[in-house]
Design a protein around this nucleic acid. Structure first.
Length: 743
DNA sequence: GACTCACTTTTTTTT
DNA sequence: AAAGTGAGTC
């Protein structure tokens, strides 16, 4: 026991050894948050406050959950099996499987990931003949998920205008479709669990009595529904209910876009009369300069609970800043820098390359690849989201649950087997008439048994029979063969990598089989044979990417800033510090958008232990166009004394044309997200005396600035950004009369 | 019905 | 840049 608490600082010790009660721990970046959580669990059990069965620990990522289990098992010999440790979605899945009947679901219900959900919504709009221009599927998806995350079923949504009314109807139709097809989307996992707990008293009582201590990681990222779910389990803080131990950092809340509600922290404090708020402010990760930069940055946010990190490690190295001409130059410089770091003995695995959006990884990867530097990309196109893997999974899903129309549509004609749009249309019509899922509708169709559709059904039936008694990995392998997927990709020129991914899927099934069953709890129904497949499919949906994570590998780590949360590295490169990119221009529309971007920047900066590089470029290829961005305002927010410019510090160029984005600000002091005229020093094209960045005037559109050019000679076109009225236009040089203006 | 090619649209972050 | 859409051809 004493060993357990060794080396904790006074605040950590206080948090770990709080007597059973509600507590809020404000844990800054690198302050030993995970350590406090795991030690707290160990301490509770060893002190006899609670048995392992009484522990419920929730995290947001599978990575964090695994980490917690690993650390716990290392800490003491007791088995972690009895505890519920997992992500919100993972735990809700487990809960719904155990009580599927009460939840109104078949036992083998399937989980839709975001992509599946979008496909499902598109299909719904099509069958209902809804104009998808008026109701864009993505927007509808966002609407539905937003309502679910607020705990609202269609009937509970207030709709005053026709547009919203119609969207609510579509929400209801979508629900009906999901129920018909026995599928559940991400927010539905939570909402169902919540509703079941709420309306079913025996079940609620059971879990309320069971869980004595509920521990929540990254509490600042919980949404309204998750908070209410926790409240139900903890019996709302009533006498006899579980103790809620919430660990979070309001400065690291970066998931507002998916409904995270920082307000939960304040609500929790108030509703649970939390008397013990403990701040962990000592940082064990980074050197002083890095922390000072982080503190200075985040101080620009207005809505904070207040907290300031400190370290006793000394200032360390200055933060290095680099300005490049182009994104390619930036990438080249980063790779050169990495190579010299590696020569000096830094392990590649301790170097991270962070960026705001996945699209930025391409240039970096290209440069790393051609320089022969081993690297690993996290996120982006995740393994289980690759099309070949999704196809294979769709076959498996049909075996598991033929009513899954999303899966049906995905592979009914893949590989192609002569079932075209017309056949599908007829089938969809019939399915509406008979009110049956597509698969069950096939026999109803004017029935020559030899039709392609009937053959497809026979294929699935055959697969189900043949695989009924096989172990999971053989099921997967068999399906990949018999469905024709392997043959199809073998015939494809670029199919090699896809074939490897299919093999990788079989591999994943092998590993899954050996691990399966390990999480069984004594008080849960025995899992039947066929549900191993269901479990595997749920795993594929819930754990889209972690599968390929190989952190031990001696490779440079590439990932988005979001994906880097919770991780730390000796050396961090943060690239693309440009207005429009970071802060991202799309964030301007969201209320609090800029503050969330700044928190994201804060997360990025605090990932670094010893050395931090910040870089930006004058021009960048984005969405197939060269863009010229002003360097990020976040760079300006770092005090000068902490940085060292590797390129001559340049003045932050002022912008000429209209600001491209404005941030919402309650104080009406609106800030502009400007774009800048391109620097004249870039290699120029022959544009008949004009150059990128030049100010010009046009007889009709007025004054503007050339922002891009393509073609040459008679085909030469330039893109000119005019004032607010005219906007940005492509003009043929041979046609348009552009006069250079000095300025 | 399958396939190709040109055209248009999108264009953040993720369980 | 990449993905999705639509028209035209075999």
């Amino acid at each position: 026991m004493s060993q357990l608490l060794d080396n904790l600082n006074p605040e950590q010790l206080a948090a770990v050894t709080l007597p059973p009660q509600h507590a809020l721990i404000l844990a800054g970046a690198g302050s030993g948050k995970t350590r406090v959580l795991t030690t707290r669990i160990a301490w509770l059990i060893q002190s006899g406050f609670c048995s392992p069965q009484g522990i419920l620990a929730v995290t947001f990522t599978n990575k964090a959950a695994k980490e917690m289990v690993t650390r716990l098992s290392a800490m003491f010999p007791i088995n972690t099996r009895g505890m519920w440790i997992g992500t919100f979605h993972g735990l809700c899945n487990r809960f719904l499987r155990a009580h599927h009947r009460d939840a109104g679901l078949p036992q083998l219900f399937q989980i839709l990931d975001s992509g599946d959900q979008l496909a499902s919504i598109k299909r719904l709009l099509k069958t209902l003949n809804v104009d998808d221009e008026k109701f864009p599927p993505r927007e509808l998806q966002h609407f539905i998920n937003g309502k679910k995350e607020a705990g609202l079923r269609p009937a509970a949504v207030e709709a005053w205008d026709d547009f919203t009314k119609r969207r609510v109807e579509l929400y209801a139709e979508y629900e009906a479709q999901c129920q018909r097809e026995a599928v559940v989307d991400f927010p539905e996992l939570l909402l169902r669990s919540y509703e079941l707990l709420q309306r079913n008293e025996p079940i609620r009582r059971h879990y309320q009595a069971r869980f004595r201590h509920i521990l929540v990681d990254e509490f600042q990222d919980t949404n309204v529904l998750q908070y209410r779910w926790l409240s139900l389990l903890a019996d709302g803080g009533h006498e006899g209910g579980a103790s809620l131990f919430c660990v979070g950092d309001d400065d690291q809340s970066i998931y507002g876009f998916r409904g995270a509600e920082i307000g939960n922290m304040r609500d929790f404090e108030r509703e649970y009369k939390v008397s013990s708020v403990i701040r962990l402010e000592q940082n064990y990760r980074s050197h002083g300069n890095i922390l000072d930069a982080a503190n200075a940055l985040i101080a620009n946010n207005s809505k904070r609970l207040g907290k300031s990190l400190w370290t006793d490690r000394g200032a360390g190295e200055p933060i290095r800043v680099y300005e490049a001409f182009t994104d390619t130059d930036e990438a080249r410089w980063i790779v050169e820098e990495i190579q010299s770091l590696v020569r000096e003995g830094t392990s590649r695995a301790n170097i991270a390359l962070l960026y705001r959006s996945n699209a930025q990884s391409r240039v970096l990867e290209h440069q790393l690849f051609s320089s022969g530097v081993a690297y690993r990309v996290y996120g982006g196109l995740r393994f289980f989201e690759r099309q070949e893997v999704k196809h294979a999974l769709a076959y498996l899903r049909l075996i598991n649950n033929p009513d899954d129309d999303t899966a049906f549509n995905r592979v009914v004609n893949f590989p192609t087997r002569g079932i075209g749009a017309r056949s599908i249309e007829a089938l969809v019509d019939a399915s509406r008439v008979f009110n049956t899922p597509l698969y069950q509708t096939v026999p109803h169709l004017s029935g020559k048994p030899g039709t392609a559709l009937a053959q497809f059904v026979m294929l699935i039936e055959r697969l189900r029979k043949e695989t009924a008694s096989l172990p999971l990995y053989e099921v997967v392998a068999h399906v990949i063969e018999v469905s024709g997927l392997r043959a199809h990709y073998q015939a494809e020129k670029e199919g090699q990598e896809r074939l490897e991914n299919l093999d990788e899927l079989i591999n994943a099934a092998v590993n899954f089989s050996t691990e399966a069953g390990a999480g069984q709890l004594p008080d849960e129904p025995v899992v039947e044979m066929n549900s191993v497949l269901a479990e595997f499919l749920a795993h594929a949906s819930l754990e889209a990417g972690d599968h390929q994570a190989d952190p031990g590998m001696e490779a440079v780590q590439l990932m988005t800033v979001h994906a880097a949360k919770g991780l730390e590295f000796d050396v961090v490169f943060l690239s693309g510090l440009e207005e429009g990119l970071f802060p991202h221009e799309n964030s301007a529309q969201a209320e609090d958008g800029l503050e969330e971007e700044r928190r994201l920047m804060y997360v990025a900066v605090t990932r670094a232990r010893h050395r931090l590089y910040l870089s930006f470029t004058q021009s960048r290829m984005l969405h197939g166009q060269v863009r010229y961005n002003l360097r990020s305002r976040f760079l300006e927010e770092i005090p000068e004394g902490l940085t060292k410019w590797l390129t001559p510090p340049s003045p932050r160029r002022s912008f000429v044309s209209e600001p491209s984005a404005r941030y919402f600000s309650p104080n009406s002091s609106k800030q502009a997200m400007p774009s800048m005229p391109p620097p004249p020093l870039l290699r120029s094209r022959d544009l008949g005396g004009l150059s990128i960045g030049q100010n010009v005037t046009h007889a009709r559109f007025g004054d503007g600035v050339i922002v891009a050019a393509e073609g040459s000679g008679n085909d030469a076109r330039v893109q000119v950004k005019f004032g607010a009225d005219a906007g940005t236009k492509w003009l043929m040089l041979a046609v348009a009369k552009l006069t250079p203006v000095s300025g």
